[in-house]
């Protein structure tokens, strides 16, 4: 008997079940087909502009910095300003996300914009979020050529654009949108939920920002 079958049959013996149990199978397939939503906290159940406000408050509480932009066309200047404010070189690495690609980067002639994954040497990376969760101030990023996962972790400064309309009240709404975008039961290779910059409390339980991921997380909310 394979290890797989040995483990599964031991489980069934312990549960007093058998593998052809029709009722149990129906229960399981029903839950997987129609996932019950569970209890959604009231905190994020607000009208859209209040959701965006809560998202900002919670992200700042998690030590992210946040700016609001009226329009996407302001992004290149905002990126340049942020790098200047941190005394960083005018260079940024991003993926091929069309929402970033279509911007007029030539408006910032000193800003060197390169495209692709991070190899580890870049100081600043730019991503476009799939969405946000107001309840906890969490960014949701999906992997792929458009927003490579390495940009979320290797650069010291991570800048993230999020459209105000993509801020959801709760995680469950994000699941519904991911199912709509990628198909039921399907996921991007990696979904990163990011709440503030990296940190560690492993030395005497004192929280210090800037562990292995970015030391700083800067969020630009567009359209609010």
């Amino acid at each position: 008997m394979s290890s797989r079958d040995a483990i599964l049959s031991r489980i069934r013996r312990s549960l007093g079940a058998n593998g052809i149990d029709i009722d149990r199978r129906a229960t399981v397939s029903d839950r997987l087909q129609r996932p019950p939503k569970g209890l959604i906290p009231q905190r994020g159940q607000l009208e859209q502009s209040a959701k965006v406000d809560l998202f900002q408050t919670m992200a700042e509480r998690a030590a992210a910095s946040v700016t609001r932009l009226k329009d996407a066309s302001e992004i290149p200047a905002a990126v340049s300003d942020y790098l200047r404010s941190k005394n960083l070189p005018q260079a940024i690495r991003r993926g091929s996300d069309p929402r970033l690609a279509e911007l007029d980067w030539s408006s910032q002639p000193n800003l060197d914009v390169s495209i692709g994954r991070s190899a580890g040497g870049e100081l600043a990376g730019l991503s476009h979020a799939f969405g946000g969760i107001a309840e906890s101030g969490t960014l949701v990023l999906a992997s792929g050529e458009e927003n490579p996962t390495t940009l979320n972790f290797l650069p010291e400064y991570h800048l993230v654009v999020i459209d105000a309309e993509d801020v959801a009240g709760d995680m469950e709404t994000i699941w519904a949108r991911l199912r709509a975008a990628y198909g039921k039961g399907e996921m991007p290779r990696t979904v990163n939920m990011v709440t503030g910059p990296s940190r560690s409390g492993d030395i005497e339980q004192t929280i210090i920002l800037g562990a292995h991921g970015p030391r700083s997380l800067h969020i630009m909310i567009v359209g609010a």
């Binding site: 994954r117 992997s143 050529e145 390495t150 991007p188 990163n192 939920m193 709440t195 990296s198």
Partner: peptide, 16 residues
């Protein structure tokens, strides 16, 4: 800070 959901290996259009 990081809650990460991983599904399978690198895909055809993945740079990482």
């Amino acid at each position: 800070v990081y809650t990460t959901f991983s599904t399978g290996p690198r895909r055809s259009d993945d740079p990482d």
